[in-house]
Amino acid sequence: MIASMTGYAVMSREIPEGSLTLELRSVNNRYLDIQFRLPDEFRLLEPAMRELLNTQLKRGKVDCRLTFIPYANTDLPQKFNEQLLNKLLELNNAVKSALSDAKSLTVADILRWPGILSSDTLSTTVLHESCMELLQATLNEFTATRVREGEKLKNALLERLRQLRQLTTELSPRIPMLLANFQEKLVARLQEAKIDGNDERIRQELILFASKIDIDEELSRLQTHLDEVEHTLLKGGRAGKRLDFLMQELNREANTVGSKSVDAEVSKISVELKVLIEQMREQVQNIE
C-alpha cells in the first residue's frame, strides 16, 4: 500500500497508578525525524520507543507525545532523591553567591522540582510493558491513517496520470499537421516571390523545419515515465523518493516540448502538462 507521511493517532490507557495517553502526529520530511515529549518517569523508555517506531516508519517528521496523569487518591510510597537535592542546594548557594538579592529555594520549590520525588510503583521497569503496549496500539492506528491518506493520494495521482496521457495523445497528430501547413505556406511564398520552388529545395526546408519541431522522442519518454509512475503507484510500498524523481523527469520532457513549440495549441498543451505535473509533484511530497 502507498502510505502518506501525514498521519495522526491518539490513544489512552488506564493503569492502577493513573492514566497514560500517547499521541503520534507526523508531516512530510525527506528523512525520518522523531521527536519525543516524555514525562521524566519515562525518559529511559525513549530508546525502546524509538526502535519500535523505526521498524514501521521510514520517512516523515514524527512527534511522539506521552502524558501521564496520576490518580489523586492513589497512596504511593514516595522516595526522596537526596542526590538531586544536594545538587539543587549547591546550585542555590552558587546563585546566592553571584546574586546577593536572589531568593533561596523554598521547601515547596524543592518538592515540586521534577524528579525530586519518585514512586516505587511508577518506576520505568514496572511501567515499561504498559507504555510499550500503548505505543504499539497507537502506532498501528497511526500507520492505518497514513495508509488511508496514501490511498487517497494514489487515486488523485492516477487521475492526473490519466489526464496527462490524454494530453500527450492530443500532441501526436499535431506535428504532421504542422508540417503540412508549413509546406503549403512555403510553396505559396515561393510562388508569390516568383522563386523556383523545386521539390529538392522544398524537401530541404521541410527537413530543417521538422527537425526543429520534432517532439517524438519527448513524447516517447513522457509515455515511458507515465508508465513507470503508474507501475510504481500500483506496486505500492515506500515509493515517495522514486515518484519524486519521476516527476522531475516528466517536468523536463514537458519543458522541452514547450521550447520546441511553434504552435499555439502545442504551447497550451505544454503548459497544461506542466501544471498537472506540478500538482502531482506537490502530492508526491507527502508519500512515504
Rank of each mutant, 00 (worst) to 15 (best):
F209P: 09
Q166A: 15
L158E: 13
N255T: 00
N29Y: 11
A193H: 09
L158Y: 12
D33Q: 11
N92R: 03
E170A: 14
L85K: 07
F245Y: 10
A193D: 13
D109L: 06
Q35A: 14
G18H: 01
T169D: 11
R37P: 06
L88F: 05
L157C: 03
L88S: 09
V95G: 03
D33R: 04
L127Y: 04
I195R: 15
H225V: 04
R160K: 13
P176N: 08
A188G: 11
K96L: 13
K103A: 14
K260M: 13
L76D: 08
L250H: 00
Q223A: 15
K235V: 05
N54M: 05
L276W: 03
L206H: 12
E141Y: 02
G60T: 00
S19Q: 15
V126L: 11
T21D: 03
M132I: 10
Q223F: 02
I287R: 06
R50W: 00
L85F: 15
T74M: 13
N29W: 13
Q191H: 14
L89E: 10
L208V: 14
E249A: 00
S97H: 07
L273M: 05
Q136N: 14
Q35K: 12
G236P: 09
R50F: 02
D196G: 01
R112D: 14
S26H: 01
S100K: 12
L127W: 02
A94H: 11
T125E: 07
S220H: 13
A72W: 06
T74N: 14
T55L: 14
D40Q: 11
E192P: 05
V262F: 09
K194G: 11
L178K: 10
R43L: 15
A3T: 10
A210N: 13
D33Y: 01
A188F: 09
L243T: 02
R112I: 07
F209S: 12
A264F: 07
K79P: 02
A9G: 04
S26R: 00
A254M: 03
I69H: 07
D263Q: 02
N251R: 00
Q56E: 12
Y31L: 11
K274P: 00
L219D: 05
N155A: 15
G197H: 10
V262K: 10
K58Q: 14
A180E: 15
R162D: 15
N93C: 08
A193M: 15
S4V: 08
Y71E: 15
E205W: 07
I215M: 06
A137R: 10
N92D: 15
D196C: 04
L139H: 11
V10D: 02
E278M: 04
D101C: 05
L157E: 05
K103W: 08
L85S: 08
L246H: 08
T143Y: 10
I195S: 09
V95N: 12
S267L: 03
V62R: 01
L66P: 03
L52D: 11
R30M: 04
A102L: 08
M11N: 06
Q163K: 12
E133W: 02
R201W: 01
L24D: 05
C64I: 03
L171H: 02
L135W: 03
N29R: 04
L206S: 06
S259H: 01
V27L: 10
L99S: 08
L38M: 05
R148A: 14
L233M: 06
D40N: 07
L38I: 04
A9F: 07
Y8I: 14
E288C: 02
T138R: 04
